[in-house]
């Protein structure tokens, strides 16, 4: 059984100009010990999906359809009081900016023990010991001493480690990491990715790694889901998707990443931009930018169709009835 199992998830935002559907018919799952990368442009709906799982969608956004199962339990529409007990305990969340994720007025020790004591029955001394162990585990040197330090006394990378320690407080089975490396220096990025990978392997945590950075995905993820304008464009094993992308959008995305040793005069790019949510064309949202678009692409969005290697699927009509496209 997968740790996280999302099927047919739809998220909508009612606005005065009509209802915007930000995420449509999203289906994916993550196994224990697995890292699933979710990649897409900003506004594609990746962060919304993460927020929807932990019940932190900003109103008026809400889940209209679909089911979210956590270890087989339906958590889609849990009341806030129930959801609160899952957040931080079974699901750990890591946000983009470690500089602003921590309350500046409390020591990191206070923030860790507060989180631990919220979810676990422990004495203060036990909570402190556990917190120091966590700090040690995420690679903070001299954790006993740093326990009483304030967030501003840490560097960006160290703060992100503290944030990860906070997400790990209660041995979660799922971690949602929303752009965990975007705000960090490149050298620190690699350390944080290595840390996430190690935790996933050693503790068997299922990890949802949301990012717009293909490099991070290639480095960390086992499988990858590509989201375009609120819909899943392609999902599959990370090597297959990177080496042999099937969806025209993924292909364009891969082509536009410069390779070391490659000698190109012009870096290929995808013509145009992702449509705004209120200006999405009928049919496949990628059709205005797609050179392979045909009649049906303007009528109806394609379902996920098996293409390429095992488990790789792309939402593109060209694969209907067997592989044709390249």
């Amino acid at each position: 059984m997968a740790v996280l199992d999302i099927s047919n998830l739809c998220i909508e935002f009612p606005t005065r100009r009509g209802v915007l559907s930000a995420v449509e018919d999203l289906t994916l799952s993550i196994e224990a010990g697995e890292i699933l990368g979710i990649v897409g442009e900003s506004g594609a709906g990746k962060s919304l999906t993460g927020n929807a799982i932990v019940g932190l969608l900003e109103p008026p956004g809400h889940v209209t359809e679909g089911v979210i199962l956590l270890n087989g339990r339906d958590i889609t529409h849990l009341p806030e009081s129930e959801m609160r007990k899952i957040r931080g305990a079974q699901i750990g969340v890591i946000f983009q900016d470690p500089l602003t994720s921590l309350d500046p007025l409390y020591t990191i020790g206070q923030q860790l023990t507060q989180t631990i004591l919220t979810h676990k029955k422990m004495s203060n001394a036990q909570a402190k010991a556990w917190a120091i162990e966590l700090l040690n585990e995420v690679g903070i040197p001299a954790p006993e001493r740093r326990f009483d330090a304030f967030p501003h006394e840490f560097s960006g990378g160290m703060r992100q480690r503290v944030v990860i320690a906070l997400a790990l407080c209660c041995d979660p089975c799922l971690i949602i990491a929303d752009e965990p490396t975007t705000a960090l220096d490149v050298s620190v990025q690699a350390q944080i990715i290595a840390l996430l990978k190690r935790l996933s392997r050693e503790k068997g945590v299922a990890t949802m790694l949301v990012t717009h950075d293909m490099g991070v995905i290639a480095e960390a993820a086992d499988r990858v889901a590509v989201i375009y304008s609120g819909r899943l464009a392609e999902i599959g094993d990370v090597r297959s998707v990177i080496d042999a992308p099937k969806h025209p959008y993924t292909k364009g995305l891969m082509d536009s990443i410069p390779q070391i040793g490659q000698n190109l005069k012009i870096l290929p790019n995808i013509v145009g931009a992702m449509p705004r949510l209120d200006a999405r064309p009928d049919g496949c949202a990628f059709n205005p930018r797609c050179s392979k678009a045909k009649f049906i692409c303007h009528q109806q969005a394609a379902p996920l169709i098996e293409a390429g290697s095992v488990g790789q699927r792309a939402a593109c009509w060209v694969y209907e009835g067997g592989e044709k496209y390249v």
Partner: peptide, 25 residues
């Protein structure tokens, strides 16, 4: 603020978030 969002994501009690973190800031 992000740290309030993060506090909620850690499942802290509403009272702790409102008076411990938000009010103090």
């Amino acid at each position: 603020a992000d740290f309030i969002k993060f506090a909620r994501a850690r499942g802290l009690k509403r009272r702790d978030i409102n008076y411990g973190h938000a009010l103090k800031n």
